[in-house]
Design a protein around this nucleic acid. Structure first.
Lengths: 348, 348
DNA sequence: GCTCCGATAGAAAGCGCTTTCCATCACGGA
DNA sequence: TCCGTGATGGAAAGCGCTTTCTATCGGAGC
């Protein structure tokens, strides 16, 4: 029923071996023969059987991209960039067409491991993990073990936005400089004169949350300013909205709120407005990530720019093996403060 | 080097056949034997070889989800929903774990076909195409042919947000009622008293663009109001920003602008504000899709709500075969007008 | 007590490809 | 003229799993 390589071989009057060689192009085949084979492929509308090919060759052209939340543009932008870098690469087998697939873990460690196992099953060529991870030691160990096994089996492992868990070769890591970015942001607020700053943080126990919080605290400590209230929540507007109520309850005299990211900042702004507070007149608000919409917020959001697209491309190339990782495998991606309209001097 | 099923069999002192049966659970195996096998699997840390399994069984547990732009929350939300529906389904082979993978076509017909071929190679269990498509007849035909081939080979095909191209069984389609949604939206504007309405449309030649435009025009025609200027552009803020300048140039007395979607609307708002125009005092603005951020826009966006999450889940279930498609395979998803602060009565 | 049957488990034949040997063949050099 | 040699193409052995087809065994039925 389905056309197989043998059918093509018969039609082209060559052996299956030759057809395979034409298709994979890693062995000399006379031009005339090649053409005959290609014509047969065309005429029969032959499609390679991926599983069979992968089985025989012991690798597949699948590249897995794991993200915490596919509905969040933060990941969408990176994944998109990685996918296009992976798609256009292509010196590998099977004509170099790699199938970049993105898998949504929802931030759940279990799903992350499940996907990694599934990709291991498929003998994926590479795996890219995007976004911070949970800091639970048990999970960290399980993930590290799984990644080590993948790397050992020849799957390239790339981390993008999370610290490396294993010093393995075959593993590269890109980390955003969240600490410095957060620090600059809070310094900016301090320079404006803010002394009571609330923090609507991301989920507890996540690397990203901790790093940003550390940067924030470092800035406060350096300036000798007392830390304001901190509330943890998810990375969505709802969380920002809820956090704001809590923060204001804990310190009604806040003059600024730093949000875990831009989306959360949107929720913070909404909550402040509902209470009749002006931004930045009464309260300044800052985000993080510099997602596309943050420039269109009203007022436009002061935030920390992360080169998501560039990082995604780089991650994709590392996964393809097109580019080599830095020595040590760890690469720091700079974060840059972007001052816009949502932050200003506090009243008085 | 890698542990194979035979190794597990040897360790458990059973035949490979028995191990396979335990793993796939579709054949009676004595409890004691099963346990012995599972212990061996655990002890050896065995991971099934996906390609081998797929080859022998002639299907894989891959489900492809194709989206036009993964960085756009519109697709992110649907894909996320579909992926979770697919992940939790699971009566299939291999323990029912399906690997839902999302592929980013970037709206390019070529990439779409490439991905479809790649998925066909992998003998994917199902394919979900999300979002509108190009209306170029040549592309339409090529896609239809490819989808027919996939369906014929036993791959379930689900369209979500695009009209069906083939009346095949094995194929289901979910379509958003863009026409009605757009019509209601324009009717709303007309009721408010607007008579000069600009339209910042999506890319030309796309089904979604056309349907929304048709709804808009239908409302105008029914009210006997002359159509205002229309500008086509991409689905991003930049396009909305640029379109606004053009629309205003063509008719400086516009009192309302309808955008292709919420993201575009954000760009429209930004451009209007830059010109010192008040929203909705001077110009009303409306979006489409009701993405999460639109409620936080200032003023909050009047838009058309699309049940993206629900549609994604439904698409996922159709892909899994958990739910049956309606007779005829076509299902209409309702779109609902949501009036917020960005639209109001025109001055005077 | 013997046959028949349900419940289990093993043997073995592939699934469709890749790849390692080999076999050819046409030349150029000695 | 004969042989070494590079360029091609074929034969065949798997890759690791699934799945028929059989074989075995302990009762139940007569």
């Amino acid at each position: 029923m389905t056309v197989t390589l043998a059918d093509v071989a018969a039609r082209a009057r060559v052996s299956p071996a030759t057809v395979s060689r034409v298709l994979n192009g890693n062995y000399p085949v006379a031009a005339s023969t090649r053409e005959r084979v290609l014509r047969a492929v065309d005429e029969l509308d032959y499609v390679l059987n991926g599983p069979a090919s992968s089985l025989a060759a012991a690798t597949s052209d699948l590249v897995g991209v794991l993200v915490n939340d596919i509905a969040d543009p933060f990941f969408g932008i990176m994944a998109s960039a990685a996918q296009s870098a992976i798609g256009e690469g292509g010196s590998g087998r099977g004509g170099g067409e790699k199938l970049a697939v993105v898998c949504n873990t929802g931030g759940s460690p279990e799903r992350e491991l499940t996907y990694l196992t599934l990709l291991q099953r498929q003998r994926a060529a590479a795996v890219v993990l995007m976004g911070g991870s949970l800091e639970d030691p048990e999970h960290l160990a399980a993930t590290a073990a799984k990644l080590a096994k993948l790397a050992e089996a020849g799957t390239r492992v790339v981390l993008c936005g999370r610290p490396p868990v294993t010093g393995d070769a075959n593993t590269a890591a890109l980390v955003f400089d969240n600490r410095t970015g957060a620090r600059r942001l809070t310094e900016h607020l301090l320079e404006l004169g803010h002394r009571r700053i609330g923090y609507a943080a991301g989920p507890a126990d996540r690397t990203t949350t901790r790093h940003r919080l550390e940067g924030h605290r470092a800035a406060l400590a350096a300036a000798g300013v007392e830390e304001g209230p901190t509330v943890h929540g998810a990375y969505d507007r709802q969380a920002g909205h809820a956090a704001t109520a809590e923060l204001l309850a804990r310190d009604p005299d806040l003059t600024a709120v730093v949000a875990a990211n831009d989306t959360v900042a949107l929720g913070v702004c909404a909550a402040l407005r509902e209470r009749g507070l002006d931004i930045p007149g009464d309260v300044s608000v800052a985000g993080f990530d510099d997602l596309p919409f943050s420039i269109d917020a009203v007022p436009s959001l002061t935030t920390v720019h992360l080169p998501l697209h560039e990082a995604g491309v780089r991650a994709g190339r590392l996964a393809m093996g097109t580019e080599e990782p830095r020595t040590g495998g760890l690469e720091r991606v700079p974060a840059e403060l972007v001052v816009r309209g949502s932050t200003g001097r506090p009243r008085g």
